[in-house]
Nucleic acid binder design. Structure first.
Lengths: 336, 336
DNA sequence: TTGAAAGCGCTAACAA
DNA sequence: TTGTTAGCGCTTTCAA
């Protein structure tokens, strides 16, 4: 059906070797031969069979990315943007992206393993690292090239990009404190996630620095979704002595919290302050616009991908571990 | 490095043929031999080299999906959810997903072409079809298996799933009319997209049925982003005689429109009604919650993927072209 | 029940 | 400058 190198060889009367070399622009082919071969190849609509090329070369030019989906109504805009970032750099360097979806759990590692041992990918971009992250351990042990968005608590030394969550929360809490808030609640993502620990630590440290502390009933845990942000905020606002400010560990939960407050007839930014973390595009147009800490998700996707490709191609990395400085985005959800 | 079938053959003293057969559970291998081989394979941590398998089988067990990204701050939650749907079915049937990002345009088709002729995928899921869609024409001409989310205006007969946009807009407009609205504006997505035409037609027809029409200055075009929804809504609300209701062609633009209205101090759902289309998860928790038309995006991803896999595997399809009935979701952005 | 051999489409070492 | 040959890891026909 589709033309192969052999067909071209037959048609031109040359050997397949010569054809291969001509097509790759090697110097040891006479100009006339090359020209002829290239022309015929074009006529026949030849495109190399990448499978065959890859089997031979033992490279796949493919990056693996496993989407940690939870349940059916999965729709974290975080991932669209991150994937778009990966895609932009991958395309630039001629790499493809092999995506699988697999919820965190026992079977997750199996998916990584199959892709590695099946030689389907040259390396991985790992996302949402956990404190003890079996994916990181596995990839590290098997010397599979990989980069990660986020740190772990193990002592494995691997290339990553992360944003400084401690500092991010500090500047956010300081902002709230400077606005006069004393009763500040925090809805934390699950502490399995490393970023959740850093953010929580940032909250603690900043409050302590201001001579404050977070009462037990003001520290709740959500699962990163709007739904859980809403539920937790309802809990907080139903307290006899509710907080005047609620920080959510990510923007999605912050939106849920806003929704909870508004349902109670509270004015967000007036009666209660609500802040998030991530600065997804939605944060700009929510009502009120969300005060949050910016993370350049698209760019992080790009950076990681370029790092990974360098690792795969055995090129030196300028910096193996990058910790980005967070930036506070003040909008209206915490008052003027 | 990684064990191959040859290594196992050497270790067990059997031929590679026998090993291959044993591993596939063929009947013509003695039970003892099979057991032995399987055990050794496990000991050596053998996993088949998928590249080699695929080259041999001429199948890739991979589905192609090209993300039509626009610009860097790309973050349409639509795609996370759709991709998760594709992923869930793909995983179920043992398929991988090869994702590329490529903005619509000249180079887009080239990406499809390379994946097809390079035999990287067995078929494609095409998304956001356009009226004259070169992707559909190309895939159709080359007899590449594919399914699409959406219709086109050509006379190519291909398998798709789509939601009835005409009816969707009709029920939405009827709802607004029943609430007493007479001055209804519409922010349409670009009319290159087939779904945009259907939705626009639905608006026209429903208004006509109610004895109304859409004045020229009430029909504007946005690019599906919140930003453009906001800009268009600002334009509408600045008119001497502004609309009492604004319909946006998708939820994201509706959020932008809400933001514009709220910035002017208008109460959405009170002073002005705003409605969207898609029912992304955000629609439930926005403030106010958005009245919109539901599209089961995750499920459509699943349906399409299962259809595509059946086509690839030459199995009969129950229905080749599925038009889903839309469902109106009444929330608070259009009043009670 | 088992094995030898061809071949999927390609690259590259070596020889001419 | 060109061609022969081996081989990437696998499946499958054919023969034993």
């Amino acid at each position: 059906m589709a033309a192969t190198i052999k067909d071209i060889a037959k048609r031109t009367g040359k050997s397949i070797t010569t054809v291969s070399r001509a097509l790759h622009g090697y110097a040891d082919v006479s100009p006339e031969t090359r020209e002829m071969i290239v022309r015929v190849a074009e006529e026949m609509g030849y495109t190399p069979n990448l499978l065959a090329q890859r089997l031979q070369k033992q490279r796949t030019d493919t990056i693996g990315f496993i989407l940690p989906t939870f349940g059916p109504r999965f729709s974290d805009p975080f991932f669209s943007e991150f994937l778009a970032g990966i895609g932009s750099s991958a395309t630039k360097y001629g790499y493809d992206i092999l995506v699988s979806t697999q919820p965190p759990g026992d079977k997750e590692l199996e998916v990584y393993r199959r892709k590695v041992t099946g030689r389907q990918v040259d390396g991985f971009v790992v996302v949402r690292t956990r404190c003890q992250d079996p994916r990181i351990s596995y990839l590290n042990e098997t010397s599979t090239p990989f980069v990660a968005f986020g740190r772990t608590e193990g002592d494995i030394d691997y290339p990553f990009v992360d944003e400084d969550g401690v500092m991010g929360m500090k500047i956010l809490v300081e902002h709230l404190v400077s606005l006069g808030h004393r009763r500040i609640a925090y809805i934390s993502p699950p502490l399995d996630y490393t970023f959740a620990r850093y953010r929580l630590r940032g909250v603690h440290e900043a409050l302590a620095a201001a001579g404050l502390a977070i009462p037990e009933e003001f520290l709740l845990f959500g699962d990163l979704t709007q739904r859980s942000g809403k539920a937790r905020a309802q809990q907080l606002l139903a307290l006899a002595d509710p907080p005047t400010a609620i920080i959510a560990g990510n923007d999605l939960m912050a939106f849920g919290a806003m929704s909870a407050a508004q349902q109670l007839g509270l004015r967000v930014g007036g009666d209660v302050a609500i802040a998030g973390f991530d600065d997804i595009p939605m944060a700009e147009t929510s009502h009120p616009p969300l005060t949050t800490v910016h993370q350049p998700i698209y760019k992080i996707g790009q950076m990681l991908t370029e790092m990974l490709i360098k690792i795969i191609q055995d090129e030196p990395l300028e910096s193996r571990q990058i910790l980005l400085k967070p930036q506070l985005i003040v909008r209206r959800s915490c008052g003027e």
